[in-house]
Design a protein around this nucleic acid. Structure first.
Length: 110
RNA sequence: CUGAUCUGCGAGACGAUUGCGCUAUCUUCGGAUAGCGAGGAAAGUCCGAACACCCUCCCAUUUAGGGAAAAAAGGUAGCGGCUAACGGCCGUCGUUUGGGUUUUAUCCUAAAUAGAGGUGCGAACAGAGACGUUUAGCCUUGAAAGAGGCUGGCUCCCUUCGGGGAGAGCUUCAGUGAAAGCUGAAGGUGAAACGGCUAAAUCCUUACCGGGUGCAAGAGCAAAGAGGAGAGUUAGCUCUCCAGGUGGCUCGCUUGAGCCGGACGGUAACGUGCGGCCCAGAUAGAUGAUCGUCUAAACAGAAUUCGGCUUAUCGCAGGUCGGGCUU
RNA sequence: GGGCGGUUGGCGCAGUUGGUUAGCGCGUCACAGUGACAUUGUGAAGGCCACAGGUUCGAAUCCUGUACCGCCCA
């Protein structure tokens, strides 16, 4: 889990990022990012039931994404509200594949 | 060795680095340290209860509160018990069935006479009442499918020869007899062969259960906006108070029909009292990531909380029954 | 998290006291008709009634479980 100040917690914050954010897609992930006022990094992760039917598998994907993103948040390289959406293909992806996909997305962003 | 079924136990371990939630303590308010941190099914939501609100009615009515007799609808159904409650569990009767004893059992491993005492084999079914018929059905097969009625055949009786009345209902064999419809036995068709079967369809009766909604129940604090009152002010507007309650926050939220140990009562389910323990409480939702060694490691992630049932599923041990092989 | 509903030919739907061979509309195919089509007419094919058990003599229908799809509650 990420520290509380670095999470997106309200439904409105999610929707705002959805509508105003810039979208970048990878093989397994879809990232929406929009700048916020406090100049902080706040992250929300979405894994829908369409991706994986079992709750244990959805949790697993979430945990892996969190772990990948954590270093990013702590170092504060990327700033803004970020929503990471898992694509259907991410159900069978490994940790290393997810991490490579994330780094690829960061390259596209910069 | 293997299959089925039942019961019980466990649910990867250790080490390193790093990260999250709650609680406690300390704090230079940045944080630090310590402890604890998913399941047997957390699941399906198929039942039941606690708790909260609403509805009906009754008692008390100044209130606070306490209750479910009656009505509707629905559910349950051998009998007895357990329980907060249940469609659950335990015991027992019944029906069907398997195994065993000494060949057949009404017997049950101490297993076939008599008496006394002790012990009490396994599995499945799901059972109130109405001599079950008021509501209904029995496709098909067959000569015939409850009784009664109708139609046709058969037997007997009567007959005005038009018919009428009574009776029995498959086949074979045996008995009695003039004759089989009677009596007894065996057998055929069929799911069922007679006063039969079906009720996990309906209706009626009896007993028991008040009903509904569900923690997104519900309760509190309260920015904003809209409303009312008062004061200041020429007015715009500002301030104060009241009621109300959106965003938000807090409570409900984890000490509980709790867990462990041994004692007593009971055939058992379970109960009684004693001692010890505190064991998740999040709110976009918390033990994951990267390694090393061993390893067979499945199904799978709490969201108000419990008791069951059902479904998913890895490993080990034991009981019962069946099958195969060897001695 | 809590509460509900649905699944029947290719598509949209009927089908309840359980009982002949599960129907309807559109679509499909064949034939007729036309110079050729459309409209029209005649006929035909196409169903494991989502799946698996159970109750029953008999199940699309009743009961239980499973799978999939959808709706409502802040």
């Amino acid at each position: 889990m990420l520290p509380r100040p670095n999470r997106l917690t309200k439904k409105k914050e999610f929707e705002k990022t959805y509508q105003q954010g810039k979208a970048v897609g990878g093989e397994f992930l879809l990232v929406k990012i929009s700048p916020n006022q406090e100049n902080k990094t706040r992250v929300g992760i979405v894994v829908s039931k369409k991706v994986a039917k079992k709750a244990t598998e959805r949790n697993k994907i979430k945990r892996r994404i969190r772990e990948i993103v954590r270093s990013e948040v702590l170092e504060g390289k990327t700033v803004g509200d970020i929503v990471i959406i898992a694509k259907r293909s991410s159900e069978k992806s490994s940790y290393q594949e997810l991490k490579a996909d994330w780094e690829n997305i960061l390259l596209k962003l910069s």
